[in-house]
């Protein structure tokens, strides 16, 4: 019974560290699966895992809003439409025929990765890091909303215009496709 406040604090930090390592592993492993998988759907699953790892890193950094948005938009919407596309496509017959990873590919990839790591690492070490200000827990959503509707209102409206054009365009494209392949009745 010699647990004190400090031990609890240490234990919680330990749990957070383990979670951090887990998120990093999920991000990297998911990324490797996404580029290395032969089955398309496995690649998409890898991508989802990677995105969720990044969402976990946002949680670790204390910004729950961005993490929730990451899950909601990238995992819940973008990746689901990818899974849809993959499901609707015919599975490739020669999915297992050719190995994707040749030794030369792996070798050249490793050399490029090492070079990039060297360059980025030097920049990271050289950069004078300032400790982040304490996170305001309650205000994040409010701040984002106020920013969007005051300082950055022009950008906000511009994005909404771009999205409107995109929606209209996709409706037109979808409509033309339907006219060509005369009305195939209700749904999937």
């Amino acid at each position: 019974m010699d647990f004190t406040f400090a031990t609890e604090q240490k234990f919680l930090v330990l749990i957070a560290d383990i979670a951090f390592v887990g998120f990093i592993v999920a991000t990297l492993f998911g990324g490797i699966v996404a580029v290395g998988a032969r089955q398309l759907i496995h690649a998409v699953l890898g991508l989802i895992m990677s995105l969720m790892g990044v969402a976990g890193l946002y949680v670790y950094l204390g910004n729950h809003f961005i993490a929730a948005m990451q899950i909601l938009i990238y995992v819940g919407a973008v990746s689901i439409s990818m899974v849809f596309a993959v499901m609707l496509a015919r599975p490739p017959e020669d999915a297992k025929a050719k190995p994707l990873m040749f030794a030369t590919k792996i070798g050249s990839g490793a050399v490029i990765a090492l070079f990039a790591a060297f360059v980025v690492g030097r920049a990271v070490i050289a950069h004078p890091w300032v400790k982040a200000a304490t996170v305001v827990k309650e205000g994040t959503i409010r701040q984002i909303g106020e920013n969007l509707l005051t300082t950055n209102v022009f950008v906000f409206e511009l994005i909404s215009l771009v999205l409107l054009v995109a929606i209209t365009g996709s409706v037109i494209i979808a409509k033309r496709g339907r006219d060509n392949t005369d009305q195939q009745g209700g749904g999937v």
Binding site: A68, M69, G76
Partner: peptide
């Protein structure tokens, strides 16, 4: 503080 978004996200997963 983002519970509603958390629920929507999880139901998406």
């Amino acid at each position: 503080n983002v519970a509603v978004l958390y629920i929507l996200g999880l139901s998406g997963i």
